[in-house]
Write a protein that binds this DNA or RNA. Structure first.
Length: 311
RNA sequence: GCCGAGAUAGCUCAGUGGUAGAGCGCGGCCCUGAAAAGGCCGGCGUGGGGGGUCCGAUUCCCUCUCUCGGCA
């Protein structure tokens, strides 16, 4: 029996994935599963450029605006729910079309996640405390003693990863560096097709700047004001735009500086996304042309990859 | 036209008689339970043009061009 097919449409922020995805989904009988760590959150429509209600009516979107911004969300949760949705779609005879720009979320679906070692609040809190009191070098040395391989891979300044590695070790007595080798993803069970949208850096940046500009006329400031009144999850509160607007609201700088920061940080983010995707040889790149419409791009994808999409 | 200040990295500017730095921007990279997060690396640039002094000038002198401010 033929392996079931899942399709990914990846690319940097602001390149126009969402619109292309809708056109593509219509043509190949697919439903869209978001592959975006921030679009899962509700009440962040403007901030994360979520698809509109109208667009959602055209094609079913999963994991967009699905949970409250106060709830913690992470790769593991994403993987679990996304796989369930995937199976439902298969049962309904539909193709899952993953769309987004979160490289790790993509990788966690296709390449897998290592054996379940969830976060541990108590251990975390202890490690965070040690970090504050004794500094990163102390934690790094501690890690080097128990898991040399992990320490060799992690930079001494990268506290986030040092803490996670230690957390895994303290909880299980096993090295994260060993566990990481045991990941199994969907890539082996399913037929995975990956497409990536690209465009020249300069036009991407112009598009990003423009998108941020539009956020302001659409009312990001108010959206963020509303969000800041509630408790935000660790992930959600670092969505590009929230810290920047917060600084503005606190009077640290004016509106134009706030906008400038959001544009710059979005550009930096796009750059990091490109770095992540670049090395992935599974991705078939689609060069988006200047002023090319979403339908045209979708049609081009179908025309050039008919076999892998339909068969 | 005269007087003054300046012309150094994409931008803003610092500094030095022995061929230059910073911030921002930008580029490259890492990434397995916060990932729109977090971390690492990257600066040879006709020192505005020409001439002079000097062993040696980006640094001193002259001159030209341009920019800014003031006076007419």
């Amino acid at each position: 029996m033929l392996k079931k097919k899942i399709i990914f449409l990846l690319g940097p922020t602001g390149i126009g994935k969402s619109a292309v995805a809708i056109k593509l989904a219509k043509k190949i009988n697919a439903e869209i599963i978001s592959c975006d760590s921030m679009q899962v959150y509700r009440r962040m429509d403007i901030l994360t450029s979520q698809v509109t209600r109208r667009q959602k009516r055209q094609i079913k979107h999963h994991l967009v605006g699905a949970i409250n911004p106060g709830q913690e969300y992470n790769v593991a949760r994403y993987r679990r729910t996304a796989i369930v949705i995937c199976d439902k779609l298969f049962a309904a005879g539909k193709i899952p079309l993953f769309v987004g720009g979160s490289g790790l979320y993509y990788s966690v679906i296709v390449d897998g996640l290592f054996a379940a070692v969830p976060q541990d609040k108590i251990i975390r809190a202890q490690l965070e405390k040690q970090l504050k009191l004794k500094g990163n070098t102390y934690l790094y040395r501690r890690l080097a003693k128990v898991d040399r391989a992990a320490a060799a891979k992690i930079h001494p300044h990268d506290c986030r990863r040092i803490i996670r590695a230690l957390e895994v070790y303290l909880k299980t007595g096993k090295c994260i560096s060993k566990l990481q080798k045991e990941r199994v993803g969907l890539g082996s069970h399913y037929q995975v097709k990956v497409f990536g949208l690209t465009s020249p850096r300069q036009s991407l940046y112009t598009a990003i700047d423009r998108r941020v500009e539009k956020m302001f006329t659409a009312g990001v400031i108010n959206e963020v004001k509303r969000l800041l009144k509630t408790k935000l999850s660790l992930t959600a509160k670092y969505a590009i735009g929230i810290p920047e607007v917060k600084g503005y609201l606190e009077g640290k700088y004016d509106l134009s500086e706030c906008k400038r920061l959001m544009q710059r940080n979005s550009r930096h983010y796009a750059k990091r996304q490109l770095t992540w995707f670049r090395k992935d040889t599974r991705i078939k790149w689609i060069k988006v042309r200047e002023n090319e419409k979403a339908v045209q791009i979708a049609e081009r994808i179908i025309k050039n990859f008919r076999k892998s999409l339909i068969s």
